[in-house]
Design a protein around this nucleic acid. Structure first.
Lengths: 108, 108
DNA sequence: CCTATATACTTCACCTGTCAATGTATCTCT
DNA sequence: AGAGATACATTGACAGGTGAAGTATATAGG
């Protein structure tokens, strides 16, 4: 849907980790935060979001637990781990580097 | 192989078009130019490069013709079309936009 | 009460771009 | 003759993203 999807592709993980650095959260809320951050310009597709959670958990970058809501739908909360923090730092550095690289390449 | 591959992904077309704006060229030479431009930090894999040529030609963004080398291996030259120029402009604008968007998203 | 809407998570099938591997052919240098 | 550079092409596999569909609960409005 979004124009930006090709750039964002492969950065879903970093985007999620960036959100979790600010504290534990759950899928729906994270997506909301992303929409607000971008003034509605971007949102993650649900399938993308939950696939990313699986991937990140399997890599040991996040852990999850069920919230104890006594009302509303159940929520699965996620926490960023030490490995996740390190991964985030690497991804951020990579992004800075790649950005400069592509800028060079895309200029005639 | 490269660190930047996830960012560059989906921008191969724009990179190639950026090269062709400077004049007709052929696969091997374009890849060389890319390597030089990035001081060896990046190169396209051959499969990626030639797949992109097919895609761009099919979309009408480039046209191709065989060079009339009387020595050495034959070369297939590519020209950017009007549609290609327009596509490039769109891609460049998109990149600027996406860059800003991802910068926002990747920051905690 | 019933329906629509929002919240919240899950799974499956499919598409696209990338890339490793492999193959072809020609030229130059030793 | 053999090695290495030039030059193009195809195949099969893989990873990430996404549309579509499904499950379940709470709330607001008619």
């Amino acid at each position: 849907m979004s124009i930006a999807s090709d750039v964002i592709r492969g950065h879903t993980d970093a985007i999620i980790l960036a959100q979790l650095i600010q504290g534990d959260s759950y899928g729906y809320k994270i997506n909301r935060a992303i929409q607000e951050k971008t003034e509605g310009q971007y949102e993650l597709k649900e399938a993308t979001l939950y696939t990313a959670f699986r991937r990140l958990e399997q890599m040991g970058c996040i852990t999850s637990y069920w919230g104890d809501e006594n009302t509303g739908a159940r929520r699965r909360y996620y926490s960023i781990t030490q490995a996740g923090l390190e991964m985030y730092d690497r991804m951020l550095a990579e992004w800075e580097q790649s950005q400069a690289l592509l800028q060079k390449l895309i200029t005639p």
